[in-house]
Simulated assay, not measured.
Amino acid sequence: MMQKDTTSAFKGKTGLTRIVRAFGYSLKGLRATWRDEAAFRQECVLAIVMLPAAFWVGRTAVEIFLLCVTVMLVLMLELVNSGLEALADAISLEHHPLLGKAKDTGSAAVLLALILAAGWWGYVLVDRFVLS
C-alpha cells in the first residue's frame, strides 16, 4: 500500500531563512491581533504598565520573574484564543456547538490566566505593602 505524502509545501525552508520568515509571520500575527482584538490591546496596555511595575513591586528575582510571567501568560493565551476564534470563524460563521465550545474553551484559558495573574499580583502587593 502506497503511503500518502503529507509534507506541507510551506515546510521546505530551513536554517536562517526559516527563522527570519517565522519571525516575520509572528510579527504579522501580533499586528493582526492588535488590529482586530480589543481585549488584546487592553491587555497590552496593562502589560506596558505592569511589566516595569514588577521590578518595583517584586522584592526578589523570583517574585519579579513570576509577576512578569503571569502578565506574559495572559498575552500568550489571548493570542492563542484569537487564533482559535479566527480559525473557527473561517470554518463557519453559522452557530455550531463544537465551534462554540472551542471558542468558549479558549476564552476560559484566558480567564484562568487572568485569575492567576490577579492572584499572584494581589499576593505580592499585599505581602509588600500591607503585611510588611
Rank of each mutant, 00 (worst) to 15 (best):
Leu131Pro: 05
Gly58His: 08
Leu51Met: 05
Arg128Ser: 11
Asp5Phe: 13
Ile115Gly: 09
Leu125Ala: 12
Lys103Tyr: 00
Leu46Ser: 02
Arg21Tyr: 06
Lys4Met: 10
Gly122Arg: 13
Trp56Ser: 04
Ser26Val: 11
Gly122Pro: 08
Thr70Ser: 15
Ala90Thr: 08
Glu43Asp: 13
Ala109Gly: 04
Met2Thr: 08
Met2Gly: 08
Gly122Tyr: 15
Gly106Glu: 02
Ala90Ile: 02
Glu94Asn: 14
Asp89Leu: 15
Ala118Met: 12
Val45Gly: 01
Trp120Pro: 00
Leu77Glu: 06
Leu99Asn: 03
Leu111His: 06
Ala117Gln: 04
Ala109Glu: 01
Thr33Arg: 05
Leu46Lys: 04
Met2Pro: 13
Leu46Thr: 02
Thr7Val: 15
Ala117Cys: 06
Glu94Gly: 12
His95Ser: 11
Lys13Asn: 12
Ala117Tyr: 00
Asp5Cys: 13
Phe40Lys: 00
Asp89Ile: 12
Ile115Lys: 10
Leu75Lys: 02
Arg41Glu: 01
Ala61Asn: 14
Ala113Gly: 03
Met50His: 03
Leu125Pro: 01
Arg128Gln: 11
Gly15Tyr: 07
Arg59Leu: 10
Ala47Cys: 04
Phe129Thr: 08
Met50Ala: 09
Cys68Arg: 03
Ala102Leu: 15
Leu111Met: 10
Ile19Val: 14
Thr14Met: 14
Gly58Arg: 03
Gly15Asn: 05
Ala88Lys: 00
Thr70Asn: 03
Gln3Phe: 10
Thr17Asp: 15
Met72Glu: 05
Thr60Arg: 12
Ala38Tyr: 07
Met72Asn: 02
Ala109Cys: 09
Gly100Tyr: 05
Cys44Pro: 00
Ser132Tyr: 04
Gln3Ser: 15
Thr33Tyr: 04
Lys101Trp: 13
Asp104Trp: 03
Lys28Arg: 09
Trp34Lys: 05
Leu16Pro: 02
Lys28Met: 11
Phe55Pro: 00
Gly119Thr: 06
Thr6Gly: 06
His96Leu: 08
Ser132Gln: 14
Val45Cys: 03
Ser8Trp: 13
Ala88Thr: 14
Leu75Ile: 04
Val74Arg: 01
Ser8Leu: 14
Tyr25Trp: 10
Val69Asn: 01
Ala47Thr: 03
Phe55Asp: 03
Ser8Asp: 08
Asp104Lys: 12
Leu27Glu: 09
Val49Asp: 01
Leu27Tyr: 10
Ala53Arg: 00
Trp56Thr: 12
Ala32Ile: 06
Leu98Glu: 06
Lys101Glu: 01
Ser82Phe: 11
Asp36Gly: 07
Leu116Ile: 01
Met1Ile: 09
